[in-house]
Amino acid sequence: MKRFLLLAWLCLAPLAARADDASFTVSPVAVDVTAESAAAAKEQAIAQAQRDAFDTVLARMTIPEDRAALPQLTDDDISGFVQNFEVISEKTSPVRYVGSLTVRFSQAAVLTFLREHAVSLIKTRSQPMLILPVFWQDGRLMLWEDENPWREAWDQVSGSGTELMPVVVPLGDIADVAGMSAEKAISGDNDIIRKMADRYHAGGDAVVAIAVASGPQDDPLARLAMQIIRMAPGGDVAVRNLDVLRSANEDDAALMAKATAAVLRELRLAWKAETAVEPIAPRDIDVMALVSSLADWQALEKVLQQEPRIGKIVTVAFGAGYVRGSLTVTGNIEKLQQALVAQGYLLTLGENGYEIRKP
């Protein structure tokens, strides 16, 4: 009887609506607007905050080429995508409004807009990416040292909770120092680096970000020559070189922050290009999920519901160790497989259709 009730619940319960998540929320959004009156300044500031926040959401979820092809939207158009907003802080004068806002967008409205314009999109949040910031200056290689300004800059972005591609930087505690050195990091030993990634539950790529102070003797940080070594869990390696120059009146901390942003931009562009969903006609595939408990199935179902390549989820049978059904899939199957790997699942094709399971 219990098994029958469980089967009935799985088959007949309505598919839960996909909840709006942090990917569609932007906070804080700073605004500073002057107009003919305080009321007009606030109205314009709210419109500006919504536009800035919408641009941020699009930048998270799409690739630059697709964004450039989107139509220009009015303030009223963008307001139609807003689920709600709240004021974090504000100051007003007779003609000025200065504030900080949180803006939340309707997930359904934004995704519909992007799909109507055939935009490749990224909705799946990747597993955290480990960053090992190695710094070289005056013949000295540094990783955990307190005087490593490169690691200090990366500490400021570690553990991002709102990006689709979060990054994590090790704490540099006793265990980290014992298990990893700057020399080991730049050696590219994937086994050693994966152990460090596992310690921080960083299941995504591991990146050794090497920054070399390459400026003249009187200002070594006038130029940072950077090499980004990106290692996938399976062992594939990609290398990218970047240069960042110090701007006029830019101090060391600002230079390091600019260099960190440049590396993150390159990493996110590469990740988005790999995970973007192509606008391909949807089709149904038969799937058997290999799970050991109801809790395991619910965890997998949540991942499937949040995956933009998957539309309708149909459950037709529940048995000991499996759930059988079908998925309506849009886009390239290989890209779906990559996205599920990033969430800790394998999608493989067998004799009787596709199977989904933990590695």
Rank of each mutant, 00 (worst) to 15 (best):
A47I: 05
F113C: 08
N190S: 15
V29I: 12
D66C: 01
R268P: 01
R18V: 00
D21S: 10
A39C: 07
E90H: 12
V341D: 14
N352R: 10
V323F: 03
H117D: 01
E334M: 09
G172R: 12
K123Y: 01
S23Y: 01
M256C: 11
M226L: 14
P359C: 09
W154F: 13
A8T: 11
S106G: 10
P14T: 04
D77H: 06
D296Q: 11
R194Y: 01
D243G: 09
R18P: 00
L73Y: 06
E307Q: 13
R151F: 06
A178L: 13
A13W: 11
A16P: 11
T275F: 10
M142C: 04
G80I: 11
K258Y: 07
D296C: 05
R246L: 09
Q337Y: 09
T348D: 15
R324V: 13
V31Q: 02
P14R: 08
D20I: 00
G179M: 13
S158W: 01
Q337H: 07
A276S: 14
S37F: 04
L143K: 08
L242I: 15
N352K: 14
T102H: 01
E36M: 06
M1F: 07
A342L: 12
A182Q: 04
V323K: 00
M256A: 10
I229F: 01
A53F: 02
A339T: 07
Q217P: 00
G188F: 14
W136V: 14
A232W: 07
N84T: 12
R51M: 06
M226A: 03
L6W: 13
V263F: 02
R51A: 12
L141P: 00
A342V: 03
M256F: 14
D189Y: 10
P71Q: 07
A248F: 11
L10E: 11
V287R: 06
A8L: 14
S160H: 03
L141S: 01
I192E: 09
T260I: 01
A30F: 11
Q48N: 08
I63P: 00
A47T: 12
S79N: 15
A281Q: 05
A68Y: 03
V177K: 15
Q72M: 03
A254C: 04
T124M: 05
L300D: 09
V207I: 12
D176R: 08
A30S: 08
